[in-house]
Amino acid sequence: MAIQRADIEKLCYLARIDLTEDTAADTAAGINRVLELIDQLRAADTAGIAPLAHPLEETQRLREDRVEEKVDRDALQAVAPAVESGLYLVPRVIE
């Protein structure tokens, strides 16, 4: 099922990836190639088959409720693009 330019723009917004004018056509073509591939799934007979999310059907292990992480803020923020007074700076958040 081929997708159109408008769909690509919506996807790019959902995924927060700026779509530049010069690559838009290539992006759409590439995605449509992949969609042709995955559309082969439609032919598969999967009636009554339960989905498989994990290869091994194990269940979740639980962690005891203990404070085990010592937070070294300076070390963690050494890789941050912009911090001030221990906070990560971003353009103003408007709700």
Binding site: R63, D65, R66, V67, E68, E69, V71, R73, L76, Q77, S85, G86, L87, Y88
Partner: peptide, 19 residues
């Protein structure tokens, strides 16, 4: 809880930012 849902960091209120 004492620690977070998916990590062992503390949940107490009032700590300095990002500590």
């Amino acid at each position: 809880t004492r620690s977070k849902l998916f990590s062992g960091a503390a949940t107490a209120f009032g700590a300095a930012p990002n500590t």
